[in-house]
Computed example of a mutant assay.
Amino acid sequence: MSNSHIFMPSGFIRTPLQNGLGRYIPQLQRITLKFCKNHGGSRGVRDFIESDLMDFAKSNPGTVVYLKPRRHRSPCAVAEYLNGEREYLSLHEFTRDEVQKWLSYMRTRSGIPTMRFRKYQHTDYPTIQGVWNPFTHQAAEINTAEFPHEDLSKPVNLAPSATEQLIEIFKRSQITDSKEKPDN
Rank of each mutant, 00 (worst) to 15 (best):
R71I: 06
F35P: 12
R116A: 07
S153G: 10
S104V: 02
S10K: 13
L17W: 04
P155G: 03
G11K: 06
V45L: 08
F7Q: 06
D52W: 03
N83Y: 12
Y24N: 11
N157P: 12
H137R: 13
S42D: 04
A139W: 08
Q174F: 05
P9Y: 03
H92L: 08
Q165L: 15
A140P: 01
L166I: 10
G44E: 02
P16K: 06
I128N: 04
R70G: 00
R71W: 01
E85L: 00
P75L: 13
S4H: 11
T176Q: 13
R86S: 14
S110E: 11
V45N: 04
L89M: 12
R46W: 04
Y125T: 15
T15D: 02
P126H: 08
A57S: 14
N19M: 05
G41F: 05
Q100C: 02
A57G: 03
E180I: 04
G20I: 09
V131H: 03
H137T: 09
L28R: 07
F48D: 01
V99P: 10
S153A: 14
Q100N: 10
V64A: 06
R109K: 11
R116C: 00
K179Q: 14
V156W: 01
Q138M: 14
T63Y: 05
N133S: 11
Y105K: 06
E141A: 10
P26E: 11
L91C: 15
D55Y: 07
Y88F: 15
T127K: 02
S4W: 05
A162Y: 08
P148N: 05
T144A: 07
L28P: 09
E141S: 13
N3H: 14
P134I: 10
A79S: 12
F170P: 01
R118I: 14
G44D: 09
I31T: 05
E146N: 08
I31Q: 01
S110Y: 00
D52A: 04
M1A: 13
V64W: 02
G22Y: 08
P182F: 08
E93G: 01
R116F: 03
Q165T: 12
H39A: 15
